[in-house]
Amino acid sequence: MLDDRARMEAAKKEKVEQILAEFQLQEEDLKKVMRRMQKEMDRGLRLETHEEASVKMLPTYVRSTPEGSEVGDFLSLDLGGTNFRVMLVKVGEGEEGQWSVKTKHQMYSIPEDAMTGTAEMLFDYISECISDFLDKHQMKHKKLPLGFTFSFPVRHEDIDKGILLNWTKGFKASGAEGNNVVGLLRDAIKRRGDFEMDVVAMVNDTVATMISCYYEDHQCEVGMIVGTGCNACYMEEMQNVELVEGDEGRMCVNTEWGAFGDSGELDEFLLEYDRLVDESSANPGQQLYEKLIGGKYMGELVRLVLLRLVDENLLFHGEASEQLRTRGAFETRFVSQVESDTGDRKQIYNILSTLGLRPSTTDCDIVRRACESVSTRAAHMCSAGLAGVINRMRESRSEDVMRITVGVDGSVYKLHPSFKERFHASVRRLTPSCEITFIESEEGSGRGAALVSAVACKKACMLGQ
């Protein structure tokens, strides 16, 4: 009897593995994704193909990295998701002549009506938060230079001027797309009239992360975010950046690689679950690469896999709870928690219980395998993109072996128990001629924006502006 049951459990697990095998990517698959990513990057950089390229390769006008001589107080704003952060950054000489960066910050959550109302409502709310922060720190009387981390696709015309191309991540505030974001912020500050600010720089969160990590390690020339969304930036040779005049030196390019796949480059790798996630998203047909990796989508992918296993009578005796059938019910943090389970399955059992399920031991094991399959594919897909960037940098610099540091931020990278190990191992397999160091950014977005502002202020002083 026991043997029969054991055989049935083994057969069930084997069927589960057959279904989950769809998520496995072979090294040849990853090399294919990497080569296609490089081709799209090239198209994004070139003037004649930029418009139709899915990977936009947006110039950021960040050319210099901090040298350690900029000092002063800077205000930093960070808008990239449902939370908005205001930070005071003091850049100065530390002990023994070292450079020191001290920060104080406060988080504000953005109400739904500000995210989806008008641009005026959104930026009025942001300036209200700045006003509140300055009151708390008794700094209303000071006109501070301000660095703005704005983590949406922007076409820069200068370091302090950028046109919002399109909202992502659930934002829909009308009247912002096609307009200068810094102008919208300046107008809102003017409307309030109770404080003055000098907006000197606007950067993407990947750029802010790279600059913040450069402060720790001067070989950091790539910034990457794996959180709600997924994106990367890197220092490109100016001669390859056709959208900006000049051939000397390097400029940081914001790849906006989340949109890779929007022209069909990933079609052969998309599964039924991916198509369902895409169809029910706020932007169907867009940001397809990001939807395979980002935390906004990972939990939902797992939920759809679990429903398939229920329908195949391989999980929960073929019956799903009402909660499990509800879109968004299986949160991405559950994926991390399930994979963090120590082996007694308590954590998995508790999560499934909150979803109205009474799982068996085998159910718990199957749910864990589903989570591992989805998150491992995410790590491997992400590795193909980064390997594409790094191999490109090595080739354009004609280096036999390139040493490089990548600064990384984002909740999936930082909080998932195995993502970074799987990701690092896969990147290294795909970049055999590179020695890569990964560092995690601390308060990256805010500190990085302030350091970019410090560079901009120093330049302005040198130019006598």
Rank of each mutant, 00 (worst) to 15 (best):
R7Q: 12
A11S: 13
V16I: 12
Q24A: 10
L30V: 07
L30R: 09
K32H: 06
Q38K: 06
E40H: 00
M41D: 00
R46N: 12
L47S: 12
K56E: 06
P59T: 01
T60L: 02
Y61F: 11
Y61K: 07
S64F: 15
E67R: 14
S69F: 12
S69G: 14
E70K: 09
L75V: 12
L79D: 04
G81W: 02
T82N: 06
V86L: 05
V86D: 06
L88Q: 12
V89P: 00
K90T: 15
V91T: 07
G92C: 06
G94C: 11
E95K: 06
E96Q: 11
G97M: 10
S100G: 11
T103Y: 07
M107H: 06
Y108Q: 03
S109C: 11
P111I: 05
T116P: 01
T116V: 12
T118F: 00
T118Y: 02
A119Y: 01
S127I: 07
I130W: 05
S131M: 09
D132I: 04
F133M: 07
K136N: 07
K142E: 07
K143C: 07
L146N: 03
T149W: 04
T149A: 14
F150C: 02
V154N: 03
R155P: 02
E157R: 02
E157A: 04
I159W: 01
L164T: 03
L165W: 05
F171E: 02
A173F: 01
S174C: 01
G178R: 00
N179V: 10
V182C: 10
D187H: 09
F195Y: 03
E196Q: 12
M197T: 06
V203H: 00
N204E: 06
V207E: 00
V207M: 03
T209N: 14
M210V: 01
E216S: 15
H218W: 13
C220I: 14
C220E: 00
G227P: 01
G227R: 05
T228K: 01
N231H: 10
A232R: 04
Y234M: 15
M235Y: 06
V244H: 06
G246T: 06
G246I: 15
N254M: 02
E256H: 15
G258E: 01
G264P: 00
G264L: 11
E272P: 05
Y273D: 06
D274S: 04
L276C: 07
L276M: 07
D278W: 04
D278Y: 03
E279P: 00
E279Q: 12
A282F: 12
L288C: 13
K291N: 00
G294E: 01
G294H: 04
L301P: 10
L309A: 15
L315T: 09
E319V: 09
E322F: 11
E322D: 09
R325P: 08
E331N: 09
E331L: 11
T332C: 08
F334M: 15
Q337M: 04
S340I: 12
S340L: 11
D341C: 08
D341G: 09
D341W: 06
R345A: 14
Q347R: 12
T354N: 11
L355E: 05
D363R: 04
D363G: 10
D363I: 06
C364G: 08
A370Y: 02
C371A: 12
C371F: 00
E372G: 10
T376L: 10
A379P: 05
C382Y: 03
A384P: 02
A384D: 00
A387I: 07
S396L: 10
S396M: 12
S398Y: 11
D400A: 14
V401H: 12
R403Q: 09
G407F: 01
D409Y: 09
S411I: 03
S411V: 00
V412S: 05
F419Q: 03
F419S: 04
K420H: 06
F423T: 13
H424A: 15
R428Q: 07
T431S: 13
T431R: 04
E435Y: 09
E435K: 03
I436D: 00
I436S: 10
F438H: 05
E443P: 06
G448P: 01
A450D: 00
A450R: 00
L451K: 07
A454C: 10
V455Y: 15
K458W: 07
A460I: 15
M462C: 09
Q465E: 06
